[in-house]
Amino acid sequence: MSALFCDFPLAERIERAEARRMAEATEKARKRPGSAAFVLPVAGGVATFAEAGSPLNKVAGLGFGGVPDAETLAGVEKAFAAVGSPVQVELAHLVDPGIGAALTARGYRLESFENVLGRDLRGAADRVLPEGVEIRPSGDDDFAAWLDVAADGFGHPDDQDPPSDHQFSREVLTRAMRDLSEGNVRRYVALCDGVVAGVASMCVVDGLAQFTGAATRPGYRRRGVQTALLSARLADAAGAGCDFAVVTTQPASRSQHNAQRQGFELLYTRAVLGTIFTNL
């Protein structure tokens, strides 16, 4: 099999889908009483704020609609400052380098990286089911249980992963995951010996399957749960007519390792840049 090549149009397709996902989830947060949430378009991407300390607070997909001017960036910064939040920008390395230069000149600092991996789905995708693991769809009747397992998994990072700078309260994380996992999202649960051990989700839009999250309870790791969840989503995505699947992982993480074992390849890296100023 030849290595995947990620050109600008493919990266733009992925980044626009991610920006749309952030916007749709944040629009749900805006409907809660007393919400200060906002969604702002910016240079082909979107700036979103859901609530204090939320993983939805970011600028995603920036740079695929040109280089933002100083007035546009100032408007985004003022919106975040008004709610007392720093700004975090996820910037794909394929965009115009002038964007990174403009951000650092405004006081943004490099905080971390995340990898975007993809897999071509044009071809058979065999299901892999380790012994003792069962995968089934998750419906509305068990959504609360799905969220509980997701919060357990995300709240306790794998001890073999590099340390993360991002920490979220369980309450805020659960609300964000609820907003991200409703609507046009397929949810899955993995059972080990009849006990829910892991969960995952997938968003299918215009032939692109976004693997939008997966978590395993700490006591059930190293039993093939993530392999089974990846395999099930790949098969379902191919069956739904998708031509491409994409997943975002922390560099050098178990999630990246599991994805690459299932045929995913590194497409590009996002630099995560942030600023601590909030009073503009």
Rank of each mutant, 00 (worst) to 15 (best):
S169M: 13
V89K: 02
Y108Q: 02
P137K: 07
G155H: 06
A105D: 09
L173F: 12
A145K: 10
P157A: 07
G183W: 00
V172K: 01
R170H: 08
E114L: 13
L103V: 00
Y188K: 06
G139H: 06
E114I: 09
S138G: 13
H166R: 15
V128P: 01
E134C: 06
G183I: 00
F113Q: 02
R178C: 10
G198D: 08
H166N: 12
S201N: 15
R178K: 14
S201C: 11
P163A: 13
H93M: 11
A101W: 10
F143H: 11
G198A: 11
V89N: 02
V199K: 05
D96W: 02
G139Y: 05
A190H: 02
R178I: 04
A197K: 05
G153V: 03
F113C: 04
E131D: 15
D96T: 01
D165V: 08
L147C: 10
F113P: 03
F168T: 05
L180W: 05
E182H: 02
A124H: 10
D142K: 04
E114V: 14
V199E: 04
V128C: 12
G207M: 09
L110I: 07
G153C: 04
D152T: 09
E111N: 06
A200L: 08
D193E: 15
R119G: 00
C203E: 12
V185H: 00
V205L: 03
V149F: 06
S138Y: 05
D159G: 08
E171V: 14
A92Y: 01
C203P: 00
L191Q: 07
H93G: 09
G198I: 03
D179M: 05
G98E: 11
S164G: 10
R136T: 14
H156E: 13
C203I: 12
A197Y: 06
